[in-house]
């Protein structure tokens, strides 16, 4: 088993290609790997409860740990209480932590 950290900086409203990252996260989990998906920048926009975000919901359902950068959330006025179930706010330190621990880290 490998450990992966996928960083998604884009959002599904502006970029269809977000489906690549979401799908990759699900496929890696299905293959038995440990996967965290970190939403940053506009990537946090689908994490607001009530958003049309079926793709992100599927990622959460697949068992991927989904984190949202607290700085990006504040920048966009998304309070923690407005996050959809299954998304945890996080400090960006988590990326450095995972890199230091040797997780394969990919940015999209």
């Amino acid at each position: 088993m490998s450990r992966y950290m996928l960083i998604e900086s884009r959002d599904p409203f502006d970029s269809n290609d977000v489906a690549f990252t979401y799908g990759l996260a699900c496929d890696l989990v299905k293959a038995g790997h440990d996967v965290a998906l970190v939403l940053v920048q506009n990537g946090v926009l689908p994490a607001r409860r009530g958003a049309n975000a079926d793709g992100l919901a599927a990622v959460i359902k697949a068992g991927v740990r989904v984190l949202a950068d607290d700085f990006s959330l504040s920048e966009r006025g998304i309070a923690n209480a407005r996050l959809t179930s299954g998304v945890e706010p996080t400090k960006i330190d988590v990326v450095i932590d995972h890199m230091a621990e040797g997780h394969k880290t990919l940015w999209h």
């Binding site: 900086s9 920048q41 506009n42 950068d69 700085f71 960006i92 330190d93 990326v95 450095i96």
Partner: peptide, 19 residues
């Protein structure tokens, strides 16, 4: 690009850790 804002935030943390 906001990528650089995030990049500098990451770099700053790594620097604080003495990496």
């Amino acid at each position: 690009s906001e990528n650089l804002t995030t990049a500098f935030r990451l770099l700053a943390i790594a620097a604080e850790r003495g990496f």
